[in-house]
Write a protein that binds this DNA or RNA. Structure first.
Lengths: 137, 137
DNA sequence: TAATTTCGCTTGCAAAATGCAAGATAAATA
DNA sequence: TATTTATCTTGCATTTTGCAAGCGAAATTA
């Protein structure tokens, strides 16, 4: 799975979409960023029910694109832990703005109120806090 | 084309992906937001070369989802102008953060330097300016 | 030590989405 | 009246997705 990501243009929006322009990739990033999930089976258990082949495909693509790193677990050699790289962590502001937008426009959103409040009223510090927590690993 | 958008969960990230989680939708939003494009043929001409059936599909989906409105042109009745609704305009911060991320991580980015500078150093005012300009139509 | 379970995938196949080229329709222009 | 402009639609081949089953290595249980 070493398919080069094809480039349709050098537009920054297009570049981003070539990496995470699909229905699943940002959910994996979300799980790594906010839900403290880190293994293949963690991701499988999320509410949206990604299928195993898509998950494997996206994880290897994300590694290829440099947003995620796969590491062998220290205690169990048969276990892998995925974590965000700095490039992946740099998506924190993007994800937070998406949460802000959806929380505003989706009546049924389950975005936690205190999370949304911080995004709306204290976004700069909130970003820093999350980044700090992610880097301290 | 009145297909209900299916909901996999009530997660805000997932909600957003159900609307713009694909390779094309945000390019149309980009064209409306930053490039002053507004017609079907404008969108067709963008560098990424969307095909006609996909464009028609996404435009009607975006109308359905309430991000875009289609209006008959005042001078030419055979012409339609698409414009962002308030819900669409609320994506400005999301797109700007994506630009910031891609400009940082894509060596070949063509993101204009002065645009990126403002996103990085004066993002709050920059958002307001763009929003104001989009609403003044 | 043998059997079972966990973990991280891969494979096969049907269904859906995409990409490409051609065509259709209605209004505007020459 | 003939041509061009503008916005799509259709048909079809290719690609991607979704679902279920299977597989191999390591870890756990009996």
């Amino acid at each position: 799975m070493k398919d080069e990501i094809k480039r349709r243009s050098d537009c920054p929006i297009s570049y981003a979409l070539e990496i995470f322009g699909d229905k699943w990739t940002l959910l994996i990033i979300r799980d790594l960023m906010f839900k403290e999930k880190k293994t293949y089976s963690d991701f499988l258990q999320s509410a949206e029910k990604i299928s195993t082949n898509i998950l494997a495909d996206r994880l290897s693509m994300l590694e290829c694109a440099g947003l995620v790193k796969r590491k062998v677990d220290k205690e169990k050699k048969s276990k892998y832990n995925y974590e965000l790289t700095d490039k992946g962590i740099d998506l924190v502001p993007v994800l937070l703005e998406i949460v802000r937008w959806s929380a505003k426009h989706d009546k049924k959103t389950e975005a936690p109120k205190e999370f949304v409040d911080r995004v709306v009223n204290d976004s700069e510090n909130f970003v820093k806090e999350i980044v700090k927590q992610l880097k301290g690993k």
